[in-house]
Design a protein around this nucleic acid. Structure first.
Length: 567
DNA sequence: TCGCAAATAT
DNA sequence: AATATTTGCG
């Protein structure tokens, strides 16, 4: 909704064009009944409210207002009523009569008893005059609250359409994520539950006085870390500090309080709001983007839209055409990176070039520049970072070139406890295919599973200690009983096709690394998980071919380029 | 177009 | 302050 919300450090909400459009105008058109004898303040409030797109009907006294309500010539969604010591009785009567109308009291003084009585009679809020713009702007919250909490029967005719539109909005808004649906359902249940509880001793329901009727956070189930699937490129919109756009502003304030907040809360933190525009010098292809807040951890259950994996759905900038100023930023999610790596491997590390990669990736919205940039980074890691680390660890005069693929910190996962245990050749698996020695097999588990050379921050949702190691590989990963490997039947042989492999297999264990301490193991596992490009530490094994194929098929990938199939 | 490196953005 | 991405340039 609010692509303009800057309060949300993490643009965690998912935005779709429709959502934005829907929310943008939400409060617009709500009818406000205003009773204020003070013509000045009445006019002032009316003006402000109208600027906020509310439709205001002003009355000088409660009788006029009541008659308007009673003859049903007009309907109202919310009322703002001024109360003072002189007119209090009449106002109380109004409150009692118009008990279906969310009524906000305003007054110059704060007579506690008057306040108390108003609230007791059903007023939803009691505000001191002058009422701040924010308060005015947010009066719609009472409408929503009433619509959802009054219980079906109590929802006035005026509120019904509001509720309906809210419901549809919410469905739209939350339509994508399962989690959000839950929220939605909860809201629905909530209102029906209240409806049930209402009859007996409905004292409470009769006098709801939520000063801030917002969707309560506690009422929604937030399962973060639980979102996956959806592979799309995420373009995060760079929040523009200058929020000059009036329209944006209104969206911001409108959504910023409760609704958008709830959305943000219910969306997995991993998401990114997106929108953007970018100039692709290449073919003028316009890239706009969408966002997909979910990242997938390997064994993800790709349940939802596997439909258009390569698509960057377009999102119109709802915040006005000015969004064109916003820059785009490609979000290299694991999915996207995986795609990238696969493309690189398909072309062969050496022949991979941006334009070609772009074609292979088939990701709409992605530009050659984006790919080039990523490729640059990718190569950088291979060329510099890894070699250095490797060199440090395993100095090997005369063979530095080859060792470039051996990454840093080669912590032995669970080295043999027995000093005399021999490490079988081929137990070490290099993750990256060395330049020029690209061969089959390796990339299969090197890429599809671990998309990157790096898994930056938590967005990848790989939770090192969550017992997902096994899942990540599709096979158990925890150390088997001391000294035995039989639990991992697969295939050392499959990976012994390159010099690297052989080299790796011949490496001598450093006594210092033979510490099977738990923390060491933990560290190793974490490392293996977080740095998939590294060869698996001794003891950790790559997934079996079966596992790989099974997993891939689960992900809807049933065909493989010939060279990617393990033999 | 590519790819490096500086500039920017988070 | 570090890192990730974009932008500029040869």
């Amino acid at each position: 909704m609010c692509c303009c919300l800057k309060d949300h450090a993490k643009p965690a909400m998912v935005c779709t064009a429709d959502d934005l459009l829907e929310w943008k105008d939400f409060p617009k058109g709500l009818k406000v009944l205003l009773i204020d004898k003070d013509n000045c303040s009445a006019a002032e409030m009316r003006l402000k409210l109208e600027q906020m797109e509310y439709i205001v009907s002003t009355f000088c006294n409660e009788n006029e207002a009541l008659s308007a309500i009673s003859n049903k010539s007009e309907c109202f969604h919310v009322a703002i009523v001024e109360v003072n010591t002189q007119n209090s009785d009449g106002i109380f009567k109004f409150l009692e009569t118009a008990n279906n109308l969310p009524t906000i009291m305003i007054s110059d003084n704060q007579c506690i008893s008057t306040m108390m009585k108003c609230i007791a009679l059903g007023a939803v809020e009691f505000l001191q005059k002058p009422v701040s713009d924010d308060k005015l702007r947010n009066i719609w919250q009472h409408v929503v609250h009433k619509a959802f909490n009054a219980g079906g029967k109590d929802v006035s005719e005026a509120l019904k359409p509001v509720k309906e539109s809210l419901v549809s909005m919410l469905q739209l808004q939350f339509g994508n994520a399962e989690i959000d649906k839950q929220v939605f359902v909860r809201m629905e249940n909530l209102s029906s539950e209240q409806e049930k509880n209402q009859d007996p001793l409905s004292g409470y329901d009769k006098y709801p006085a939520p000063s801030t009727p917002q969707l309560k956070q506690g009422e929604r189930s937030l399962d973060d870390g639980d979102c996956q699937d959806q592979e799309q490129v995420n373009f995060s919109m760079e929040r523009d500090s200058a929020e000059q756009d009036g329209e944006c502003k209104s969206v911001e304030t409108t959504c910023g309080n409760s609704i958008s907040e709830s959305t943000a809360l219910s969306s997995p933190a991993s998401g990114e709001a997106v929108v953007k525009e970018e100039h692709d010098s290449t073919n003028g292809r316009r890239s706009e983007l969408s966002t997909s807040p979910c990242y997938e951890s390997f064994p993800s259950n790709r349940t939802s839209n596997a439909a258009e994996p390569n698509r960057l759905s377009a999102i119109p900038d709802t915040c006005g055409t000015k969004t064109s100023k916003k820059k785009t930023k490609v979000d290299w999610t694991p999915e996207l990176h995986k795609k990238f790596v696969q493309a690189v491997e398909q072309l062969g590390v050496d022949q991979a070039i941006p334009s070609r990669l772009l074609e292979l990736m088939k990701v709409e919205g992605l530009t050659r520049h984006n790919v080039a940039s990523h490729l640059q980074k990718y190569r950088m890691h291979r060329r510099h970072i890894l070699p250095k680390e490797n060199e440090r660890r395993w100095p090997h005069p005369g063979d530095s070139a080859q060792r470039n693929y051996y990454p840093h910190k080669h912590v032995m996962a669970f080295p043999p406890y027995h000093p005399n245990h021999t490490i079988p050749g081929g137990q070490v698996y290099p993750a990256w295919v060395p330049p020029g020695t690209y061969t089959s097999g390796i990339q299969v588990w090197g890429s599809p599973y671990y998309p990157g050379w790096q898994l930056p921050n938590d967005r990848w949702h790989w939770k090192p200690n969550s017992g997902m190691y096994a899942d990540a590989w599709g096979c158990p990963v925890m150390p088997p009983p001391v000294g035995s490997y039989p639990q991992f039947p697969q295939s050392a042989p499959d990976f012994q096709t390159t010099k690297e492999m052989q080299y790796a297999g011949s490496i001598q264990l450093n006594p210092c690394d033979l510490l099977p301490a738990d923390e060491v193991i933990d560290k190793v596992v974490k490392e293996a998980i977080n740095k998939p490009w590294l060869p698996l530490p001794l003891g950790l094994k790559p997934p079996s071919t079966e596992c790989v194929l099974t997993e891939l098929s689960k992900q809807g990938i049933s065909t493989f380029p010939p060279h990617t199939i393990l033999r």
